[in-house]
Amino acid sequence: MFQIVRKQEMAKGTIVRFDISAPKIAAKVKAGQFVILRINETGERIPLTVADKDEFAGIITIIFQVVGKTTALMRSLKEGDIIKDVVGPLGKPANINKMGTVLMVGGGTGVAILHHIAKAFKEAGNFVIGIIGAKDKELMILENEMNAVCDELIITTDDGSYGERGFVTQPLKKYLEERYDIKIVYAIGPIIMMKNVCILTKKFNIPTMVSLNPIMIDGTGMCGGCRVKVGDKTQFCCVDGPDFDGHLVNFDELEKRNNLYLKDEKLSLLFSIR
């Protein structure tokens, strides 16, 4: 029994935050790990990275964007409702230790995951620089939370309605040119954003980690649906990831695999409306 303790809608209702009561998971989950949810008997299993936790209250936080049938259904849930299954923590935790200066780049809903990792880096005693981006001011999430854990925070929007105008890669480039002490870059967001960040950091030869979100079923290494090419090896995101060396990941393939069920998603939504 996993109860929704608190629900918050963000970014005009396209992004939703759930605080779920799951004491056993909250006690164990580390930054970068994810859980798999199934909301009802006929539901599918979807992976969602844990955005925060409170081990004393036994609560995990997940933040998701409404994209398909399951997330739409989840948005309709209210505080006090029950989620049927929550499995976790899954995946390897992010490798966090004291390095010096770390640069965190996040876009869209990716900021939710980035926040958890940035918080862990900050607690480990690093100097954290954050760059977060969104389409416009309305869609920007977790700005205050990021502000609390970052020593420096840059905000960009695509249309310039808030912060700098443009993509996250522009301030990133500036930082990479100006600062020589950046030890690692963490990029989490849309695939196209992660891809461009990796192209940029490769030029400067700075290690870059990305957090991937491929299609998954069981999340325990069984199905192999979440396989990604990392370098010349096929890796399973659920047990070998979800964080990988961004310079080695084949993003084009990942994007194509993620689009595999777009048609079915529509069908499924239409079915539920009917």
Binding site: T42, G43, E44, D264, S268, S272
Partner: peptide, 30 residues
């Protein structure tokens, strides 16, 4: 091998048996 529509037997059978994908869209898993 990483093309779409190339599945491991585990993925295929898990979708079909555990997630009851053959009853899609009644069950959500495609």
């Amino acid at each position: 091998e990483s093309l779409g529509n190339v599945f491991s037997s585990n993925e295929y059978l898990t979708r079909m048996n555990l997630m009851k994908a053959y009853r899609f869209p009644e069950y959500d898993t495609p």
